[in-house]
Nucleic acid binder design. Sequence first.
DNA 1: TATGAATGAGCCTTCATTCAT
DNA 2: AATGAATGAAGGCTCATTCAT
Lengths: 186, 186, 186, 186
Amino acid sequence: MPKIILNIEDRIFLSAKELFYEKGYEQANMKEIAKRADLAVGTLYNYFPNKNELYFSVLEKSWNGTFEKLDQLQDNILSEKERLRSSIALIYEEVVDRKCMGVQVRKVKDLTGNTSIKNIEKKILCNTKAIFKNIKIKKQFENDEHMLEKLVYSLLINLTMLVDYYPEDKSKNIEYLYNGIVGFFE
Amino acid sequence: MPKIILNIEDRIFLSAKELFYEKGYEQANMKEIAKRADLAVGTLYNYFPNKNELYFSVLEKSWNGTFEKLDQLQDNILSEKERLRSSIALIYEEVVDRKCMGVQVRKVKDLTGNTSIKNIEKKILCNTKAIFKNIKIKKQFENDEHMLEKLVYSLLINLTMLVDYYPEDKSKNIEYLYNGIVGFFE
Amino acid sequence: MPKIILNIEDRIFLSAKELFYEKGYEQANMKEIAKRADLAVGTLYNYFPNKNELYFSVLEKSWNGTFEKLDQLQDNILSEKERLRSSIALIYEEVVDRKCMGVQVRKVKDLTGNTSIKNIEKKILCNTKAIFKNIKIKKQFENDEHMLEKLVYSLLINLTMLVDYYPEDKSKNIEYLYNGIVGFFE
Amino acid sequence: MPKIILNIEDRIFLSAKELFYEKGYEQANMKEIAKRADLAVGTLYNYFPNKNELYFSVLEKSWNGTFEKLDQLQDNILSEKERLRSSIALIYEEVVDRKCMGVQVRKVKDLTGNTSIKNIEKKILCNTKAIFKNIKIKKQFENDEHMLEKLVYSLLINLTMLVDYYPEDKSKNIEYLYNGIVGFFE
DNA sequence: TATGAATGAGCCTTCATTCAT
DNA sequence: AATGAATGAAGGCTCATTCAT
């Protein structure tokens, strides 16, 4: 298989994604991101105005790819529960293979006055909620208006944790996630 | 009620706990920790060799308090499920009221070569596992040897997320956490 | 009136002059100079070896234009004092309308080891001195061998200051400058 | 004479004043200011929040010293013209000996939104104007409402120029400055 | 022992200059 | 000859840590 030569923006994207994923926002630094992308620091700034926006761009773009695949999946002719399981499996693989970045972004500095973070979260929330479409929540939880949101956040952070702590357990992890969710549905 | 005069170590502990909790490891800085403890920066270094170890000490001590209370709870004469619910409620209150610091510590710098983090995680794991004592896991999950660990981590990160995102929902949040777990038990 | 199409060198000259005049040497940057000249940065370097020499070239050329006009003025059949007043008025208008760059160039970086600055100053000095031709200095200042030079520098920096601080006061400013000088002549 | 050991603030003040004087705002850099003061960069920031405010503080303090001496001079029992000459001589010596910083501060970046510059200029203007107290302007200039201001600025920039270009000419320079001004008075 | 000013490595960012196209 | 993306040295500033008092 021929080695794919990435264009510069993709190289920055990949390098930044890896480093933000490995070290988190604070520990990752621009010099190292540039180095890993085999570029000079200045070049990063031709594509992104600063570290903060690079972070959010990477975060968003990294999720956008996942959302597209998720969208396609929702059109499949599967039972609701089967679709849910497949969706979880898909997100799981995305996080593992593409090192999708975390959801717990609240503690990251946001120089735009927290609008960037809020927007990204909203988007992630919105897109991931779709996997619960047509599934009915148990009566006892109907009075919790944030139920779906909680399930989304819960799914995502549990998934991140499992990938991080038990990287070998793929199928068991997916089963775990699925089971943690269906308990809330009829 | 007389104001309790805390000794210096406790003052550092409290101040550091608050700031690490509010701002996270990176954004919290030693000068501010000292200031809030009404001490000089140098004094911090008489009690803790550096910021990193201060962080881990605070993290550990902060959990130790919770573990003690958790221990006492396990001796109560309650049904297993009731004990579980109470335990979850207890941890929830600890995190909210006493500003217990997070579990997701993997991304924090660890100058000891990650031994500190590992140790603390092990301890948290071990102590929290106790809340599942005598509860039987569903057959279908018996082959997952890390099941209990996963439940612990899951409980703790979900709890942190709920406290962070839905601070007003206390009782619903506890119900959510409880339900997310019992689904794995018979 | 047809738009005059300037050649590249003139476009650079104009753009650079404007920006150096508006922002000073440090704050003006090559990218913006290129942009205003509707050129690529690289093109600037085909005409001038670096920012520093561009600056001095522009400075010199900018004064050359003024010197030519000044030269023509000296041939007029006017009384000495009238010629002096007209010369001052001419320089004043040059600085205002054509955004002639300043004289106080000593504090600007000079990569040539200050030879460029010295040369330009000498030239400005020499050419501006001409406006004092045939005018006799008062006895009491005859022993100051730099008298004429001082008058030139003084005229130029005062002029710059007046244009900068009191841009609305044109005729009063010229009167001020004239009066500041004639006091030294018989 | 014993070497005076300056306290840190004075060392910063002196070092910064020298460098700003020699190189101007842009060319002077914090590392070098620190080095010349035999201090670490961080120390500068314990005394001044940033380069910009350091500059303005130095500028202001540097003039304040001069103003005090100027004040004392105004009380002397001298004729108006003699007082004027002495005042000019005093300012001249200040600029030479103490490397008083320039007045032409307009082109310096002002992060406070130009309020700092405006305030300092106003102060310099106000204090230096005092040397013209009780001296009557010639009729022909009475209609120029900025006359005194212009004379102040003019005096100061001419002085700076003379010190810069003809450092050896002290007494002739003072004579030049005096003469350039009295021409505007009766 | 407590203090807090001094330290300086290290970070983000800018911008004059280069060079492959 | 013109282009403009890539380069990387250099600058301002922060903050964990030290150490003289």
